[in-house]
Design a protein around this nucleic acid. Structure first.
Length: 171
DNA sequence: GCCAACGTTGGC
DNA sequence: GCCAACGTTGGC
């Protein structure tokens, strides 16, 4: 009991990938919040289902873009619930094998927090010695929902010139 | 557009 | 349970 409370309740940090031509940080800003639908990878789902908490912060990452990179900040704003798109035959994310009574795909809602003054390109993340171990800079890393360590998260915010950098670094 | 890396599927 | 084939991701 004693000693476990702090780590269990500590805010966690994430990175969410999105192709900006599908859904960008500007789209999130315009909508205010959105269900993070379409995740069809079990490891990414497990993060949303088991580990994310309301209030967690996430780097909003633009993938398959020119350039790709960290575009802004989002915040988890709901408990996990079934991704409605898995049951929608018209959705590109439809999964006919997902049972209604035991939905396969779970998501959370995320809210807009901040758009970085300038996108931090992947090349800049790769060039930073402090981010050498960060998942997103690793070769072949395709996971679309990634955990980010607090120091890495704080460093990305610092590179982005975010006013929240100091706050995050404090924990 | 190419292709390396990765996850999933399905035959055996 | 192995592993080849396949589909997808995503940087370049």
């Amino acid at each position: 009991m004693a000693g476990s409370a702090m780590s269990a309740d500590a805010r966690r940090y994430w990175l969410l990938k999105s192709e900006p031509h599908v859904f960008s940080i500007d789209d999130l800003k315009a909508q205010g919040k959105t269900p993070w639908e379409g995740v069809r990878n079990y490891q990414a789902r497990n993060s949303m289902r088991d580990a994310m908490k309301v209030g967690d912060l996430a780097i909003f990452y633009h993938s398959s873009s020119d350039p790709s990179g960290a575009a802004g900040l989002a915040q988890v704003c709901s408990a996990p619930y079934p991704d409605p798109s898995q049951f929608d035959p018209k959705s590109p994310y439809y999964d006919e094998g997902s049972p209604r009574e035991a939905p396969r795909w779970i998501l959370v809602d995320v809210a807009f927090v901040e758009k970085f003054a300038a996108l931090v390109p992947l090349a800049a993340l790769k060039a930073d010695p402090a981010l050498k171990e960060m998942l997103v800079v690793q070769k072949g890393q395709r996971l679309s929902v990634q955990p980010v360590s607090p120091p890495h998260f704080a460093r990305v915010l610092e590179l982005a010139g975010s006013r929240r950098a100091a706050e995050v670094a404090r924990g």
